[in-house]
Design a protein around this nucleic acid. Sequence first.
DNA 1: AAGGGATCTGAGACTCATTCGCAACTTGAG
DNA 2: CTCAAGTTGCGAATGAGTCTCAGATCCCTT
Lengths: 141, 141
Amino acid sequence: MSDESDPIEAGLRTEGVRVTRQRLAILHVLREATDHPRAEDILARAKEQDPSVSQATVYRTLSVLEKAGTVLRNEFDGAGARYELAEGGHHDHLIDLDTGAVIEFHSDKIERLQAEIAAELGYEIEWHRLELYGRKSGRRR
Amino acid sequence: MSDESDPIEAGLRTEGVRVTRQRLAILHVLREATDHPRAEDILARAKEQDPSVSQATVYRTLSVLEKAGTVLRNEFDGAGARYELAEGGHHDHLIDLDTGAVIEFHSDKIERLQAEIAAELGYEIEWHRLELYGRKSGRRR
DNA sequence: AAGGGATCTGAGACTCATTCGCAACTTGAG
DNA sequence: CTCAAGTTGCGAATGAGTCTCAGATCCCTT
Ligand SMILES: [Zn+2]
Ligand SMILES: [Zn+2]
Ligand SMILES: [Zn+2]
Ligand SMILES: [Zn+2]
């Protein structure tokens, strides 16, 4: 049932992480997702594929995948955490306050500036979080 | 009992926000604080001044002060929210992963870059959050 | 292909920060 | 001083996320 040609799956397996039916369903959901879904959404979508998936397993799996570096967990303003696959490299987010849409962006310049600032303070950044909250230009508040 | 010469207090009053004993105690705690305290800490410290302050009031007051622009609410990684007075202008935070210390910094360059990036995407930033998580340079992980 | 021990999983109880509901109490305009 | 509107304390209620544990699965070994 498992597709050995899949790199993520193979990677997990070699890391000693068991690849179960439920985990595959959750991984599948994340692959299809384009919207940084919340655990709740992931559960609903995973159940369509495999009704046996439970809430606890969604949280546990997301946690496992995060530790394995496969998944990224975002905590945008308030509300619960939102997840996405880590493939594709680092990026930051711009959240549309009117629609809730999440737009991804990346700026080497900003990344570099952050490192410089930290260095000036005598620190080395382990990770960071940059979120911009705004609305489309020229839109009444 | 109220000191009319205090700008924050006067400001709240003119905004129609009632200045109560409890609110003064909480404001006082925030003025003395240098550590971005959590609601729990604020409650404990406020009680030293006025034992009648309750948990619900701390949350309600912080919410009122936040809406009034007097207080800033930060949600650093995990755990609960941490507060600070808004006076002193905008700044971002660097959190020491080893000690938990919160260091403030400000970079016009980064602020400008953020606006530029948002503009390129057709957006205007309403607010943003930039948090750097790191450790003192040259420290084994 | 079969065995079996370590890993998972589902269901529901549980945690913990924050919010609510409501009767009693204060504040501050007049 | 008076009183309506705004606040408060208490305890109950939320809600995202975690934990417990018996039973189900995975997958390494023979
Ligand atoms: Zn970044
Ligand atoms: Zn993203
Ligand atoms: Zn900033
Ligand atoms: Zn600060």
